[in-house]
């Protein structure tokens, strides 16, 4: 859990938080997000370390996407604090946006552009040097096996191809912190496996990845630590192994069931 000393109003430089004494990429303190009479996130406290692949697991409607949307500035918190890369999302959102890459749950791509044009557009929106945009585009297209289709308009892409492109756009700026919101939903098992490998490789580059998923297998395979969230509250936190040991369970689905008496997939 976060300590008060980790939350600074004016660290205002990434190095202030990414230093050896403060290894947190994200600090969430007493976060509440209400939509009229619905409380989507209810007093969430969480600290995610730099270079960690953190899985946010929970059924649909648990508050995972709302949490991500608060962290990337799309939603204003009702109460509480969210610090991303050392910057308070309420006070220094512009700096937060320079550090993050967001892969939304539903693929958001311009259909009249081809994959390369889509990626380059977002590279330009991050004001990256042209040479770096080209290099990163080539590399990411290759890694996700989209090079051949990259000059075709995305209108004709399959769902899986669009999801891959969705992720490449999120990562074009080589972000320090990547939010991947249900990145593999709707992918066939083969493509999902290769995407897992790709997501896993981000960890080797010391990137912080926040992965929301309702796939138990995905959370278990990829995450260093998992936060299980239900009705907007964090109900369990730890590495998949720790949680399974603590709750004497075979998998995280069972962990969730032992805590809540329900299955994660019931909410899907």
């Amino acid at each position: 859990m976060s300590s008060k000393s980790n939350i600074k109003d004016k660290p205002q430089k990434p190095e202030d938080i990414f230093d050896p004494n403060n290894n947190s990429a994200i600090i969430i303190k007493d976060l509440v997000k209400q939509f009229e009479d619905v409380t989507a996130v209810n007093g969430l406290n969480l600290e995610i370390k730099k270079g960690e692949l953190f899985g946010l697991l929970g059924p649909n409607g648990a508050g995972k996407t709302t949490t991500i949307n608060v962290l990337c500035g799309l939603l204003k918190p009702t109460k509480g604090t969210a610090i991303v890369g050392g910057y308070d999302v309420r006070k220094n959102l512009k700096k937060v946006k320079e550090l993050i890459g967001v892969c939304p749950q539903e693929p958001a791509v311009f259909k009249f552009l081809n994959a390369r044009e889509n990626i380059e557009l977002f590279g330009n929106l991050h004001a990256m040097p042209k040479k770096k945009i080209k290099e990163r585009t080539d590399k990411l297209l290759e890694l996700l096996d989209l090079t051949e289709a990259s000059k075709r308009k995305t209108k004709g892409y399959s769902g899986g191809m669009r999801r891959k492109l969705n992720m490449i756009i999120a990562l074009i700026s080589d972000p320090e912190i990547a939010f991947l919101d249900e990145p593999t939903v709707g992918m066939d098992p083969r493509v999902r496996r290769s995407t897992w490998e790709f997501i896993g490789s981000l960890k080797n580059q010391n990137k912080t990845v926040i992965l929301t998923t309702h796939y138990i297998e995905e959370a278990e395979a990829l995450s260093d630590r998992v936060g299980i969230i239900d009705y907007g509250e964090l109900i369990a936190l730890g590495s998949p192994k720790e949680l399974m040991e603590k709750y004497e369970s075979k998998n995280l689905e069972e962990v969730f069931m032992k805590i809540t008496g329900r299955r994660i997939v019931e909410g899907i």
């Binding site: 990337c72 500035g73 799309l74 512009k94 946006k97 320079e98 993050i100 967001v102 939304p104 539903e106 693929p107 958001a108 791509v109 311009f110 259909k111 977002f122 929106l125 991050h126 004001a127 756009i169 700026s173």
Partner: peptide, 14 residues
């Protein structure tokens, strides 16, 4: 509708 405004909104573009 296509989520593109949100996507642009999370880039540093003002």
């Amino acid at each position: 509708e296509q989520g593109l405004l949100k996507r642009i909104n999370v880039t540093p573009m003002t």
